[in-house]
Amino acid sequence: MKIFLNKSLIAWYFILPVLLIHLFVIAIPSISSLALSLTDFRGMGKLNYIGFENFNELFDDRYFVKAVYHNIIWTIAFLTIPVFVALVCAYLLTGIKRGQLFFRLAFFFPYMLASVVNCQIWKYLFSPIYGIGTVLSSFGLDLLTTSPFTTKEYSLFAVAFVDGWHFWGFLVVIYLTGMYQVDSSLYEAADIEGASKYQKFRYITLPMIRPVLVFTIMIITIWSIPVFDYVFILTKGGPAYSSEVIGTYMYSQAFERFNVGYSSAIGTMMFFYVLIIVGLFGVLRRLGWEV
């Protein structure tokens, strides 16, 4: 009996429940996914080992390649526009006292809302029957006469816009926290030197918040790959694959066509991508980048 009450063992009993549910829900299925990606399993019947054939097939699958390309565009879009806008707004917020709380809450608010609700809002606003388009056309402007979600040229950008609209306030709060940790004597010194608003931002704020900035760049790079909700709800990857991303493509392979092996190969590739990005930032930290 005594051996089971050994202090170190008791400490492990406390951790056991978390590990157990995590093992069942995430670890075991993930490892199964690694194994299934090397098979031609289709949900039932026989399961054959086919080596890396699924992966070879993926590189020849033009819809998958298209989805990867869309994810790259998505990542670049998120790394630039929301980051830039959030940096500017956070910086401007540090300069005001009155109303700062209001702006912070206003920017952050869409981040709290469900993807389903945010998509509903923008589907309505972009709809040619009810939305902004009808108001514009009453002023004689024929913009948005068709919904960008159903237009091949714009669908991907329209979806990314809605996701970015909901996400950028999150960045504002993170950057703002970082900016308040900057030593204010640096700004006082710059004021004495007669530095402009832009110069202070460029030469004091930006270098001082670099760790926070790098952190957000890392999470955007990671989060841009498994995006699913906004694409699935707004366009389901359409029209004609024009907004298909890896997440929705994998979902249709898995749950519409039941290509278990093939979709596991897609999931496996996403996992290795994340691992590489996390590893990359880990290496940068080791190299003394203070990230």
């Binding site: 829900v25 299925p29 993930s30 996914s33 299934l36 498994p226 898995a254 979709s263 999931g267 996992f271």
Partner: peptide, 8 residues
């Protein structure tokens, strides 16, 4: 990513 373990 969720897609890694969703199907299994």
């Amino acid at each position: 990513p969720a897609q890694m373990f969703l199907l299994p």
